[in-house]
């Protein structure tokens, strides 16, 4: 849809942090996903401009104790470890991964959403800490997303499934990775998708996964090889997986991405 005043209205609301209803929100998402450069630029400028309102609230001197409290709560080592329900930890971790999933489902939503996602994931982690759920936080951090060495590679559809798409987020240090994929075809019950990590030009299995009825997959692998991953691919293999790929490649990374 071409750029219109109506879009500027929605962009203004978003920049100001006004909650949009679902219809408006998806209209704006669609428009931005179509790559309206004007609205992208406008959004950034209006966000910056909206902070003029913040200056209407006078600055105040924070209590000294608050400064001390904040600064002493920074180091992860200094956060008191409290036993926390593993279920809670898993839910939070799942929520963070779900954010990834939601965004990755729609490749067209571009940079803006990826960035939101990154900050949302980070924010979730930060909220964890402020809730002092140290275990949950450690779990989440350990789970790739919060790794300081997290990397991402886009995968594109290939062969029998040109529309498939996916992304791999992984941490070489943690030897873990998460693949989120969309538009994969459901498979017969004796088949599964298998994720391959290429190291030194050779594929190493990182595990098998299934897709949901919508063709989406979210799979966390703890079987990443120690060496630097050079590329990723997904093939269709017999259920349970095989040590070396035998089936057709449906997703493969673009090393240039």
């Amino acid at each position: 849809m071409p750029h219109s005043e109506r879009h500027e209205e929605l962009v203004a609301a978003m920049a100001l942090g006004v909650q949009l209803d679902d219809a408006d929100r998806s209209e704006l998402d669609r428009h931005l996903a179509e790559g309206c450069a004007r609205c992208e630029a406008l959004l950034l400028e209006l966000r910056e401009a909206s902070t003029a309102l913040a200056a209407q609230a006078p600055a105040v001197r924070p209590p000294d104790a608050l400064r001390a409290r904040i600064l002493s709560s920074l180091g992860p080592a200094r956060v008191p470890a409290k036993p926390e329900s593993p279920v809670f930890a898993r839910m939070l971790a799942a929520a963070a991964v779900l954010l990834l999933l939601i965004v990755s489902m729609d490749d067209a939503r571009l940079r803006r959403q990826r960035e939101e996602l990154r900050s949302q994931s980070a924010e979730l982690a930060s909220r964890l800490q402020s809730a002092e759920s140290a275990l949950a936080e450690r779990t989440l951090r350990a789970r790739v997303l919060e790794s300081d060495d997290v990397q991402m590679l886009m995968l594109g559809g290939k062969g029998p499934q040109p529309d498939a798409s996916g992304r791999v987020f992984w941490s070489p240090k943690a030897r873990r990775g998460v693949i989120v994929a969309a538009n994969l075809a459901p498979l017969p019950s004796d088949r599964q998708y298998e994720l391959w990590v290429f190291q030194k030009g050779k594929p190493v299995s990182a595990g098998v996964f299934d897709v949901d009825p919508q063709g989406r997959a979210l799979f966390e692998s703890t079987q990443f090889p120690e060496a630097e991953a050079q590329n990723f691919a997904v093939t269709i293999e017999p259920r349970g997986g095989v040590p070396a790929p035998t089936g057709p490649i449906v997703l493969v990374g673009n090393p240039a991405a």
Binding site: L66, R69, S73, A122, S126
Partner: peptide, 11 residues
């Protein structure tokens, strides 16, 4: 305020 600076620290 505390949340925001923790957020800044971690993110």
């Amino acid at each position: 305020l505390q949340e925001v600076f923790l957020f800044a620290w971690k993110s």
